[in-house]
């Protein structure tokens, strides 16, 4: 019986190569994301402590505890409130304003100006979060720039607006730092999306007599839908995972309760207090929240493929 040589179509061949190229990524994901998730889930079902070398299976006890008790004064409910407040207060303005800035930058005729602003907006993103938070702590100090600016704008003198003291101001402070740090990153993503829209479509619109406002709403925004979805999902997930700004502010003396986002509660519960099983349960809950919100966003966006 002669051996049959299997014939693959070009598409199948491409798919095999594609699979080959994705293997490193899949392996990386499996080791650094999937394994920790599984491990955290298993740990969350035990009574493990950081400094203990033994653990026992306790079922859903940690989850029940988190939803019924206040976790030694730092409840999961308060952390969910802090996380959602931060996420809504940061990611919506970040998506909207980064889109506006990207559109404005695309209007610049000279590439060198556009390049300059892109770099200027992006620069904070490369700065370490810890360094950024430390700089902003100085700016939010009662003698710092923000308080002086507030006094100047509101025509007051020597008033302490309590940027790091008042609960609402403290939450706003963390949002400002995050917004400043990541806006440039999302501007770049939007610019990439905007650049991929063929100029012929705009030319046709201009010929048809559409003004800039109409062009934006009727052409740019609909064709940018996949980018908007990508940016909003990424921004939301990043906001849900926020940690270093809140942590640094708390280390600098700010109260923990108003900014006790889930990740910070995980850190304090797991590392400082050594209750790693309870912290793992919290991280699984955060994972589920992120998953559900992402699915909802995909559903709400009704994102069909955009074709030019």
């Amino acid at each position: 019986m002669s051996k049959k040589t299997k014939k693959y179509s070009i598409e199948q061949k491409e798919a095999r190569w594609g699979l080959l190229f994705t293997i490193p990524c899949v392996v990386f994901f499996a080791i650094f994301s999937f394994y920790p998730i599984i491990n955290a889930f298993i740990t969350s079902l035990t009574d493990a402590k950081v400094l203990s070398r033994t653990r026992e299976f306790v079922g859903l006890k940690n989850y029940i505890y988190l939803f019924t008790k206040d976790n030694g004064g730092f409840s999961l409910a308060n952390s969910m409130r802090a996380t959602l407040t931060f996420t809504i207060g940061t990611f919506i303005p970040m998506v909207v304003i980064s889109l506006i800035i990207a559109v404005l930058l695309m209007q610049l005729r000279k590439n060198k100006y556009r390049g300059f602003f892109q770099i200027a907006y992006y620069m904070p993103a490369v700065l370490s979060s810890v360094v950024a938070a430390s700089i902003w702590m100085i700016l939010f100090d009662p003698r710092g720039l923000f308080n002086q600016f507030s006094n100047f704008i509101l025509l007051t003198s020597g008033k302490d607006y309590g940027w790091l003291v008042n609960s609402s101001m403290l939450q706003a402070s963390t949002m400002i730092v995050y917004f400043w740090k990541y806006i440039g990153y999302f501007v770049i993503l939007f610019i990439t999306g905007l650049a991929s829209i063929p100029p012929t479509i705009y030319e046709a619109a201009t010929v048809d007599g559409a003004n800039r406002w109409k062009t934006f709403w009727r052409i740019t925004l609909p064709l940018l839908k996949p980018t908007v979805l990508l940016v909003s999902v990424m921004a939301m997930l990043q906001c849900l995972k926020t940690f270093s700004t809140q942590y640094m502010f708390h280390q600098g003396g700010a109260a923990r309760q108003p900014i006790d986002v889930i990740t910070m509660n995980i850190y304090f519960t797991g590392i400082r207090n050594g209750r790693i099983a309870r912290a793992s349960a919290m991280s699984i809950i955060l994972f589920v929240i992120m998953l559900v919100l992402t699915l909802l966003q995909f559903k709400a966006s009704n994102s069909d493929d955009v074709e030019y």
């Binding site: 004064g73 730092f74 109260a255 309760q257 207090n273």
Partner: peptide
Amino acid sequence: TEIQNLLRNAVESVMLQDESPEKAYLNLKA
């Protein structure tokens, strides 16, 4: 370490968040 954190929380709540000392005491005790 946890008790140190809880004392900190009690002090922060009265000094920074304007919590009443009576309520901060009850929270700390619990």
